[in-house]
Design a protein around this nucleic acid. Structure first.
Ligand SMILES: [Mn+2]
Ligand SMILES: [Mn+2]
Ligand SMILES: [Mn+2]
Ligand SMILES: [Mn+2]
Lengths: 228, 228
DNA sequence: AAATATTTTTAGGCAAACCTAAAAAAATTC
DNA sequence: GAATTTTTTTAGGTTTGCCTAAAAATATTT
């Protein structure tokens, strides 16, 4: 595998994070994620396409190729191992590790990362609970939990609904929740254990991100997997 | 202190390494050190001058300003701490650490480096025996040794001659060795403990780098300090 | 001190990664 | 399905860091 610039790596990682199962990623989404302009994204997509890291057709979004996915997992592996090192060994606090790892992840020596992994005792999760890909890019799929058990602000993808009654489906339809819907819990009200959640609209960058409410009963029947 | 690019940092560090006591550094020297072209060096010197990191006058070489020196010591601190980490904790071999540290040194979080320093137990020397600057940029001046005790290929600066007789000075003059001469020992012959040394010509980039021979008797009377 | 050789700078260009503004395509609304 | 809005791309520009070739300054020889 060749060597990629910091910028290319940041794009690849961002696409990986935005892209889920099915998903193609849009120009505006990626621009928002990377705090850059849509025109810059288009430039970069053309380049990444010639390097065969993404599938891209003008005006129709893009997704990682197999090589692109492999690369993304390498970068995520680096990132999370460094986060673990910073928290575990250097006693950085939980919230500080990300920013520093954002730079360290671009040091590309494979030997460095594999030795670091060994030194740390092959940790399986980073300080945020996200799984660390192994040497072969294998990543533990994070467990599925019901919405009640989801940490606040943890983006997750709906993957299971335990009650499939007509009434339940009616409610889900109304709330615009379906299999594959990506959401995060923004607040938990202790009075009645109701949740305030935000649904991430696919193919809409900054569209109606308004929060909706979920009763405890409903939340216990919706299961989701943490997004990476 | 502001943030500098990887390229700027590499230039600053290279100037520091080439510049000794007195010394101004020349365009060709720096170009050779950085494996770049003289024209690129001139471009960068103009920029570093406007940033007040070097004193530079066209056609008359350059040297680091006080700020430039401070920055150089920060980068060298990072570099050597990472080398120590790689060798000591990750069990990298002696010769492997440099290349990796060359990248890690550009991750600029001060907190990262200070915590790393603490984690490593405030080491005073890197795996090559070079001193590690402390948090304030203070660096231990490396000890002076006679040429016999100098490790092979360790660039050093002549700083003392114990025998000052006419005969000795005549010989030194002939061999073109003087106070401040920079040299390195290339071979040691076990038969008679004579040394083959190379003298680095100041203000001449790739000039007559031919090796000369030094008898054991002479070598024991010449003292030098490791260069950084 | 002239002539010659070497070193350094200038001039002009290129690639990467950004940007703004305008044009084109796609999606949405009427 | 036509009009409007939104998204995406194109066109053209900037900065950084590099390059080659030519010109200018300095150093060395003769
Ligand atoms: Mn990054
Ligand atoms: Mn993390
Ligand atoms: Mn470096
Ligand atoms: Mn070293």
């Amino acid at each position: 595998m060749l060597n990629y610039s910091t910028s290319e790596e940041n794009y690849i990682k961002a696409i990986f994070h935005l892209q889920h199962s099915d998903g193609t990623v849009t120009t505006n989404e990626l621009a928002a994620e990377l705090k850059t302009k849509p025109a810059s994204v288009t430039d970069m997509m053309k380049k990444l396409k010639t390097k065969k890291l993404v599938h891209y057709q003008a005006y129709h979004g893009f997704r990682l190729s197999n090589d692109g996915k492999k690369l993304a997992l390498i970068i995520i592996r680096r990132h999370r191992l460094w986060e673990f090192f910073l928290a575990e060994k250097l006693k950085f606090s939980w919230e500080e590790v990300h920013a520093v790892a954002e730079d360290l992840e671009h040091v590309s020596s494979k030997k460095l990362i594999d030795k670091l992994d060994e030194y740390l005792g092959f940790p399986r999760f980073d300080p945020h609970g996200d799984p660390i890909p192994d040497m072969n890019g294998k990543i533990e799929s994070s467990k599925q939990v019901c919405l009640q058990d989801l940490p606040l602000n943890q983006m997750a993808t709906v993957c299971h609904v335990s009650d499939q009654s007509k009434e339940m489906l009616e409610l889900l339809g109304h709330k615009k929740i379906a299999m594959g819907t990506r959401l995060e819990v923004k607040r938990r009200f202790t009075f009645d254990n109701s949740l305030e959640i935000k649904i991430r609209q696919p193919r809409k960058a900054s569209a109606d991100q308004s929060a909706i409410n979920i009763s405890e009963q409903l939340s216990k029947n919706i299961f989701a997997k943490y997004d990476e």
